[in-house]
């Protein structure tokens, strides 16, 4: 949509930045590295997050042209580029989440707006408002079973799926980009709660947090 005020929220210099989990790591440190830990957590901080809203057909053309990814039109699906660093996830029939390496988002928004022209759509940068936490390990799935009512059995949750669902008493976006990786997209204000929940739920399996 034209007549929209684009705004690059990333500073030109390099002032210190704090990810949504900075406080959690500061307050309780990270659990000591444990041999044979069943679950490994890692924050993928400072990525570019954008919410795209609009009609699937219009947006599909634009993201294919600009990002080289086909818009995932089927519900609850996730598409990645070849590097695996850029992704688009279906959130609703007119809403997608785009995650790209940090710093790419503003330029990407500009290019998308150029291609989309006068169509009816919206692009909103939400990079400061969420973060990605990955779960790996033998007990990752069981830890998720303790946390979300969504069925995470491989039959019900194959690679390339992503859903918005309940996590403990919060909301997360849960996705499975590769065979052995789960990603949680956490809202900033709920990040500490979700992190503490995971440490508690996975305690019996042993947890390692990679920094």
């Amino acid at each position: 949509m034209s007549d929209v005020k684009e705004f690059d929220t990333r500073p030109a210099g390099s002032p210190s930045a704090e990810s949504p989990l900075a406080w959690s790591f500061h307050r309780r440190g990270t659990p000591p590295r444990e041999a044979g830990a069943g679950v490994t957590l890692r924050e993928k901080a400072f990525l570019g997050h954008m919410v795209l809203r609009g009609g699937a057909i219009v947006l599909d053309e634009a993201v294919r042209e600009v990002l080289g990814i086909t818009l995932p039109a089927r519900p609850n699906t996730l598409a990645l580029d070849d590097s695996g660093e850029r992704s688009i996830q279906w959130l609703s029939p007119d809403e997608w989440l785009v995650i790209v390496p940090g710093g790419e988002e503003f330029a990407l928004e500009g290019r998308l707006r150029e291609v989309l022209g006068q169509a009816h759509y919206s692009i909103v940068n939400v990079s400061g408002g969420q973060t990605v936490l990955t779960l790996r390990g033998e007990k990752a799935r069981e830890t998720l079973m303790k946390s979300t009512p969504y069925d995470v059995h491989p039959q019900a949750f194959p690679v390339g799926k992503g859903v918005t669902t309940v996590f403990a008493k919060a909301t997360v976006i849960l996705r499975r980009p590769t065979e052995d990786t789960w990603e949680l997209v956490l809202r900033r204000s709920f990040a500490d709660y979700c992190y503490r929940w995971l440490l508690d739920a996975a305690a019996e399996y042993g947890v390692t947090v990679e920094r």
Partner: peptide, 18 residues
């Protein structure tokens, strides 16, 4: 279950909480 003590309810923090 685990919904007790400091996990009883989500505590939302601002970026300036620390």
């Amino acid at each position: 279950g685990r919904h007790c003590r400091d996990l009883f309810d989500p505590e939302r923090y601002t970026a300036l909480h620390q």
